[in-house]
Design a protein around this nucleic acid. Structure first.
Lengths: 149, 149
DNA sequence: TTAAGTGCAAAAGCTTTGCGGGTAG
DNA sequence: CTACCCGCAAAGCTTTTGCACTTAA
C-alpha cells in the first residue's frame, strides 16, 4: 500500500542511527494499514499475526518512538487507551460522541483557520487541529433519537 | 466563587431525580475551582481535604455522572488520565506539547468556523472544538530550543 | 420499605520498566 | 566489544465494579 511511506520512514530512522528492525517495519505497516485510528493493542493484534513471537512491550515502545520522531501522531481523545494515526499531515477529525469512533476530515476551509493571537500568554502555536464532534451514521441508525440511558 | 453555577447544577440534578449530595456538591465545587483541567485524581485530592472520608470511587462516579448530564465536559487529550473541564460553553484549548498543560482559548473567529459538509458520510456534527498545539511560556523559558531527548 | 449513594477493597484495563539474552555494527 | 533491541514478566497507574452499610423518601 504505502510502501513509499515505509521506505521514507526507514531512511528517517537510519539517518538518526535508529535501526529499522523487522519489528519496527511491521509495526509501521500495521499502523499505516489500520485506517481507524487504532489503539496500541489493536496494532499489536494486527502485527502479531505476522511475527508470532511479538511482544506487546515492543509495540508500545515502537509506537512511542515513532510518535516522538514525528513518524506517526497520537490522537487527542478522551477515551481510555491512546490512539494512533499514521497520518502526520495536518488534518482534522470527526469524533462520534456515542461510540468514540474517529474519522478523518479534510476541509480546506478548516485548514485555513486564522492563528489565534496568544502572544499575551507567551504561547507559541504550531498547529491547529479541529475536532468535529457529533454522531456517526451507524449510531444514528441504531438509535435515532437521543434517548438517555 | 461560582456559587451560581453550583446552585443551577443542583437544581438540574434534582429535576432529574438525582440527589445533590454533599459529596456531589463538593466535587462540583472542586472541578469549578480547579482551572487547569484537572484529572479525577486531582479533583479527589482537592475535595478530600474537605470530606476526610471521601473515596476515589465516589469522585470517579460523580465526575462521570456530571459529564453524562452535561454539567462538565471531558477533554480530548492524549494524556494517560482523563481530564475534566468545568466549562460547558463552546470554547477552545491551547495544548502544550511538551508538558501537556491545557489552557482555555477564547477566539471569536474560531467560534465562527464553518460547519464542514459531512452529509456524504452521514455524520451529524453538533460541535466544533479547536486545539491549538504548541509550546507554553514556561516550557519555552526552560528549554528555548527544541533539543531532542 | 425501597431505591440510591457511598466507602472499601479488589479487579480490570492500559502502559511502562527491569532484566537477561540476542543481534548487528 | 559495545550498544541497542527484543521478549518476558512484573510493576505501576488509572478506572471500574461488587458488596455491605447508610441514608433519605
Amino acid at each position: 500500500m504505502s510502501q513509499q511511506r515505509v521506505k521514507e520512514c526507514g531512511h528517517l530512522l537510519k539517518d538518526q542511527g535508529i535501526p529499522f528492525t523487522v519489528q519496527r517495519r511491521l509495526v509501521l505497516e500495521g499502523v499505516l494499514s489500520l485506517k481507524n485510528h487504532p489503539t496500541a493493542d489493536q496494532v499489536y493484534r494486527e502485527v502479531v499475526s505476522r511475527i508470532p513471537g511479538l511482544s506487546r512491550a515492543t509495540v508500545y515502545r515502537t509506537l512511542e518512538t515513532f510518535a516522538r520522531l514525528g513518524v506517526i501522531t497520537k490522537l487527542d481523545h478522551a477515551g481510555r487507551a491512546v490512539r494512533f494515526d499514521g497520518r502526520v499531515d495536518g488534518h482534522h477529525h470527526l469524533i462520534c460522541v456515542r461510540c468514540d469512533s474517529v474519522f478523518d476530515l479534510s476541509d480546506q476551509r478548516l485548514d485555513d483557520l486564522p492563528r489565534p493571537d496568544t502572544s499575551a500568554m507567551g504561547f507559541e502555536v504550531t498547529e491547529l487541529r479541529v475536532q468535529a464532534r457529533g454522531v456517526c451514521r451507524a449510531c444514528r441508525d441504531s438509535r435515532p433519537s437521543d434517548e438517555s440511558i
